[in-house]
Write a protein that binds this DNA or RNA. Sequence first.
DNA 1: TTGCAATTCAAACACTTGTTTCATACACTT
DNA 2: AAGTGTATGAAACAAGTGTTTGAATTGCAA
Lengths: 231, 231
Amino acid sequence: MAKRSPARARAKRSVHDSAETRQRLIAAARDLFADRGFARVTVRDICAEASANVAAVSYHFGDKLGLYREIVGEAIDVLKQTSMISTDTVPGASAEERLRHYVRTFLPRLANPSDETQWIGKLMNHEMADPTPIATWIFEEAIMPRLMHLRDIIAELLDSDRDDPLVMRCVASVQAQCLFYRADPFKAAVANWPPADDASVAAVADHIVAFSLAGIAAARCAPGGMQRTQQ
Amino acid sequence: MAKRSPARARAKRSVHDSAETRQRLIAAARDLFADRGFARVTVRDICAEASANVAAVSYHFGDKLGLYREIVGEAIDVLKQTSMISTDTVPGASAEERLRHYVRTFLPRLANPSDETQWIGKLMNHEMADPTPIATWIFEEAIMPRLMHLRDIIAELLDSDRDDPLVMRCVASVQAQCLFYRADPFKAAVANWPPADDASVAAVADHIVAFSLAGIAAARCAPGGMQRTQQ
DNA sequence: TTGCAATTCAAACACTTGTTTCATACACTT
DNA sequence: AAGTGTATGAAACAAGTGTTTGAATTGCAA
């Protein structure tokens, strides 16, 4: 126990390369954890990638999970910022405009492989398939706020109460369509499914918005039993 | 190399417990692989669960991957059968009826935790986050046929060519909504999101159908630039 | 009964994992 | 120049991994 604290070392930033090894470890771990998830990345992988000694992770972060926590913390910080980009709109914007803005800013981050925050989506992919103790933290900080924002938009579009189960079903329908275009090692290995270039992503975003607006409108017209439009 | 072939042993089925150990191994491996994925299950876990010796896996299946292949093969067999349930319809059924039938039979298998084929969904979850060499096999045998079936339905609803990119975007919208309700360790750990009982699942299925039919109808009316319905 | 092949078992092997140890190199202060 | 605390590096450690070994054990046929 009682891991040596490198806190003062960072403050002094004058020894050797001024804890620049630490930054190389973080950079290497970010990419590797994103690609393979926590369990399938070894400390030796990270240190080799960062040109550091095997002991460096223990020294700078206590243990492997400490380094992972650092990465996830960074991910959540970025997520909160970009979440604000998706949820902040001009004061008078209509619900439809807010939905469009949400999807148009959210989707590129998920689907565009050249997006520099792409590693975050990959990281969360692994976290969802193979949750670490950090899963609940991610959910509460990064996912829940987005869902609540969507809920408010859709409740307004449906003109119904936010507790109406129909609202959350529509939230799921919208969010599901977005998440489907997440960059994903399976789809990548098996087909070239997700649209790559900016234009395709934008086209998909507009499709999702229009598709969803029509779906929500239909749900609004027939809130109770819209399931039978025919037959 | 040259793994001892237990093929004849199975045929004779007369020694010891007539290769009943083999079945116990398969049963144990099915549950464990479904819960944790290939990489995070150890041979010792499986053998302990099956009350067998550590060497049993090598003896009966060559190696760990051989046992996994056995499990995935079984999964694909079941998947093909249930896929037929989702895709087979009465001859004169309309596209809308076929879509409804597809979602209503597909969703319970994904969402209902008491479904006895639930382990297959879990297995594929892990395969998607952490593909093994078997990923392409699964995709071609189990996923691709479903997508093609959906494509035909939606092309008919849109009254457009099957190669129209709009068709696949709508396929993605429908499939995404279904897959969103997959039982998932992350959602389970973090919230009690997915609907549990049969009634809720059926309600969600009807929601997805109605939502999607409206979305498809909207896409049909404005195939090129449906993205701006207002604003 | 004896021989035979299939099956099980305890033990070990070879390898990888996260982590620790301890000696060394370094920059800076006194 | 000597001292000090930080950082690195090579090696080792302890636990866990998939797999193999070779000696039992078992049921059946000769």
